[in-house]
């Protein structure tokens, strides 16, 4: 397990605990008392540290290398039922955007999400979770296919942004995202969106217009990353912490501003500390959201969704 800088006190205590247990195993010394004391300290340290995370620390947690990614969720939630589907039918199959059908209980869902890699090789293969236009078009194709058969759509958001490459521009990155956003506002089946990691700007919103938008506790969602915001407004990369605060990008902020519907609580220390529990929580949240949407007619569904987005924005006059 990798530790972030602010988690170092936890690392230290966990190492102490391990050593203590080892001593107990290898020698005759009774360590139960010492171990339980360290355990107590560890619990307290965890509570203290994770209770008051700054916005920037949440950004760091959202990018934690051990954090589960889209495919981890889908495989854990759907198990053997998942069937991955590929391709945009006009250019190629984008590895940064995955999708397919799977079941939770008796209900089929169309899952779509950006996919990051877990080591150098797969990170490159997945283009660091930055989709090209064909990724957004693949997502739209799957959504339309779900609509045709009345299957609800689940999108899992985790991207540092849409890929800002030369070929991406040639193939219309802006158009692809714009088209998805528009079509999602009027898709006739329920859309449940879960922000599981990074929700960076148009690249995230391109699969992120939903009836229920759920945000995991340690994720961020905004129009720009704190680093880029810092470099543009402060003309230096040094102000990312301030930028993270200013952007109001945490789940709590987003809920308060009514841009997401619910916050999903993560296990203490973040999703990666107890993956199985995280998967179970997310699976339940999806099912619960679907229950609240499934009896609406397509017309009601679209009307509610449109009205929700029309309400967004703060102005005077």
């Amino acid at each position: 397990m990798e530790y972030l800088e602010f988690e170092l006190p936890i690392k230290e205590l966990e190492e102490q605990l391990q050593k203590c247990r080892l001593i107990g195993e290898e020698s005759e010394v009774d360590v139960t008392e010492t171990c339980s004391q360290i355990e107590k300290k560890l619990k307290q340290a965890k509570t203290d540290i994770y209770k008051n995370l700054t916005s920037w620390q949440r950004v760091q947690l959202s990018r934690h290398p051990n954090r589960p990614y889209t495919m981890d969720y889908i495989k854990a939630i759907c198990g053997e039922t998942f069937l991955e589907l590929h391709g945009d039918r006009s250019f190629k199959d984008d590895k940064a955007m995955i999708g397919g059908l799977g079941k939770i209980g008796d209900q089929s869902y169309m899952f779509i999400g950006q996919q990051k890699g877990y080591n150098t090789k797969t990170r490159q293969y997945r283009n660091f979770g930055m989709a090209n236009p064909e990724g957004y078009r693949k997502a739209l194709r799957l959504m339309k296919s779900a609509e045709k058969f009345g299957i609800p759509v689940v999108t899992l958001l985790d991207t540092p942004g849409a890929y800002p490459g030369l070929e991406a521009e040639e193939r219309g990155q802006g158009e692809a995202i714009a088209r998805n956003i528009l079509e999602m506002t009027r898709l006739k089946v329920p859309i449940i969106t879960v922000i599981i990691g990074e929700g960076a700007s148009g690249g995230a919103l391109g699969i992120g217009v939903g009836d229920k938008v759920l945000m995991l506790e340690n994720t961020w969602y905004s129009v720009i990353s704190p680093e880029s915001c810092s470099s543009i407004l402060w003309r230096s990369w040094e102000y990312k912490e301030q930028a993270a605060e200013a952007l109001k990008l945490t789940a709590k902020d987003m809920k308060k501003l009514k841009m997401v519907d619910e916050i999903i609580k993560e296990p203490l220390g973040g999703a990666h500390r107890d993956r199985e529990q995280t998967f179970a929580i997310v699976s339940n949240a999806i099912s619960k959201s679907y229950e609240s949407l499934k009896n609406l007619s397509p017309k009601e569904l679209v009307e509610n969704r449109m009205n929700k987005y029309l309400e967004m924005g703060v102005f005077k006059g």
């Binding site: 714009a178 956003i181 528009l182 919103l205 905004s222 543009i232 029309l310 967004m312 703060v314």
Partner: peptide
């Protein structure tokens, strides 16, 4: 592009304007 000083609120204007354009199209 988007107005950074309104952060995610600015991002959501993409969806908001698209809603009306979808209605116009329909």
């Amino acid at each position: 592009g988007a107005r950074m000083m309104e952060a995610a609120l600015s991002l959501m204007q993409l969806a908001k304007t698209s809603v009306k354009l979808a209605q116009l199209a329909d």
